[in-house]
Amino acid sequence: MVKHRDSTHLVHQYLRHNKKFPHVWCPGCGNGIVLGALIRAIHQHQYERDDIVLVSGIGCSSRMPVYVDFNTIHTLHGRALTFATGIKLANPKLKVIVVTGDGDSMAIGGNHFIHAARRNIDITTIILNNNIYGMTGGQSSPTTNYGDKSTTAPYTHIEHAFKISELAVTAGASFVARGTVYHADKLQKLIEAALTKDGFSVVEAVTHCHVQYGKLNKLGSNVDMMKWQKDNSITVQKAAKMKEEDVEDKITMGVLMDKPLPNFTKEMAKLKDRAKE
């Protein structure tokens, strides 16, 4: 495995040299860590760049595709999975990867997400969960925790957060994993695994928005927020042995679901054969 600390040169290989840098992310943002993990995972599998399509919606994390040298598409808020579905079905040979955020995939795109999972279409979706709308300046998202503050919840948030990975499992995805940007190596391994899976594979990458969420909720710097990730993460195996109420505030890390289920893309090929008979 390529260690992330040795891999700056590798990441640079995959960046677009003709793109106008700098990027849009704030200093200390976790999005770059996820992008690094994704690039190393892709490199590990030696996929051809021409075969990869990186699809995103709208938001901070959805700016990711523009920087990397694949077929890339920055679609509309919430709709990345609908475009990805068309891209994949019209050319099943393509390796289609979606990057999206918690607002993009769980609020405006929530319906598309559960249906992509239900279909179990052969797409890998990486969800960067920072519990807030960062790009628009810190509004509540579907994963903002009860009792926390945002610019649209100045008297604290009275709604309850979605658990993204658990939702993906229930909706029918064949592979679901959760990692954090603190555990960058582990995150890379989870993405690596997701890329090889048949069907809809989801990796939830828990990250921090110290600029909006951290500031509004007095959680400290990006380093403090990453330390929090470190101190509050437990493995899926450990969580299984704990009481439910003790797990409630923890980040359950690892593979939550890994089961071969009928893959929509392959089912579609079979359907076409049946129709031609």
Binding site: T82, F83, G86, L89, A90, N111, A275, K276
Partner: peptide, 26 residues
């Protein structure tokens, strides 16, 4: 499907339009 093409019933009208544009890009 009989001519090797793809039909998909999407979850809503928005998704249908997204898949249409995505397919055209492929």
């Amino acid at each position: 499907p009989r001519i090797g093409g793809t039909f998909i019933q999407m979850e809503d009208e928005i998704a249908s339009m997204g898949a249409t544009v995505g397919a055209a890009l492929s």
